[in-house]
Amino acid sequence: MLNFPESTKVHKRIPKEAFYRHLPLSAALKEKIVSDVETIIVENSLKKENLNLADDSDVREILLLSIRLKKQDFDRKIVEAIARQNLHKLVFLLVYEDKCQLAVYHSKMYSTDWIKEKDLTLTLSGDTLAEIWDDLIRQIAISSKAVLRQKDYTVNEQLKIQDEVNRFNKLIQKTAKAAWKEQQPKKRFELYTKLQKYKKQLEELTNGKA
């Protein structure tokens, strides 16, 4: 569930046409919004005032937008374009039937896996809106518990590590599959050696040694 204070609740539906009217989107993307999106609702507005935060920050407002989709395999450029061309910090709750995922744009798009709506969790943590924003990014973009435990790193540093974790996991999966299929002992051994190297690099990365 979304553990947001009642004071932040907005739940205001925005007509799709009104939503993109003032955004410099291409005609193709506007058509995609019409074809792929059912409704857009501003669910919550997070501000210093309605969260009773004492300290100021460069972040003035964070909006949670819920977007109900007509199909799960939608054009993700829609969300990216909205996020990149909007002055607000945006967190997206994407909903299709009884499944949902969270998404956020921070230099690039990040999203969680699709899950049941009842299993959704997103909490607010921080003394300023900037700290809250960084923590929301972490909850959505960083899946490795080992990376989350690296408290001395900034959110940008953690995101870079998470990207590397993802890269090594793909390499390990690809190399393990190739080694299993390889018939020649010499090539199989070379692949196995590569696999052990990737696993060691991943372990060092997640232990903060890389």
Results as ranks from 00 to 15, higher is better:
Glu49Met: 04
Leu29Pro: 07
Leu93Gly: 12
Lys77Pro: 03
Glu43Trp: 06
Ser45Asp: 11
Thr154Val: 12
Lys187Glu: 12
Lys71Met: 01
Ala83Val: 10
Asn44Phe: 12
Ala83Pro: 09
Leu124Pro: 15
Asn207Ser: 11
Lys118Pro: 04
Asn166Ile: 14
Asn156Phe: 14
Lys200Tyr: 03
Glu43Ile: 02
Leu23Cys: 03
Arg167Lys: 14
Glu49Gly: 03
Arg13Asp: 14
Leu202Trp: 03
His88Thr: 13
Lys47Tyr: 13
Lys170His: 14
Thr206Met: 15
Val104Thr: 10
Ser26Val: 09
Val165Ala: 06
Cys100Lys: 01
Ser35Lys: 13
Asp119Tyr: 00
Ile40Lys: 09
Gln173Glu: 15
Glu164Tyr: 04
Lys77Trp: 01
Lys108Leu: 07
Gln162Thr: 03
Ala81Cys: 01
Pro24Phe: 02
Asp152Met: 03
Gln72Leu: 00
Tyr153Trp: 04
Leu102Gly: 00
Arg138Ser: 13
Leu171Asp: 07
Gly126Pro: 06
Leu124Val: 10
Leu90Thr: 12
Asp134Cys: 02
Leu124Ala: 12
Ile142Tyr: 01
Arg188Thr: 06
Pro5Gly: 04
Asn44Thr: 09
Leu2Ala: 05
Glu117Val: 09
Ser66Thr: 12
Lys48Pro: 07
Ala141Ile: 01
Pro15Phe: 00
Met1Trp: 00
Glu61Trp: 08
Leu90Phe: 14
Val155Met: 10
Thr193Cys: 09
Asp152Ser: 06
Leu159Cys: 09
Ile78Asp: 13
Glu157Met: 14
Thr39Asp: 13
Ile78Ser: 14
Asn169Ile: 11
Leu122Asp: 14
Gln173His: 14
Leu171Tyr: 10
Ala179Ile: 02
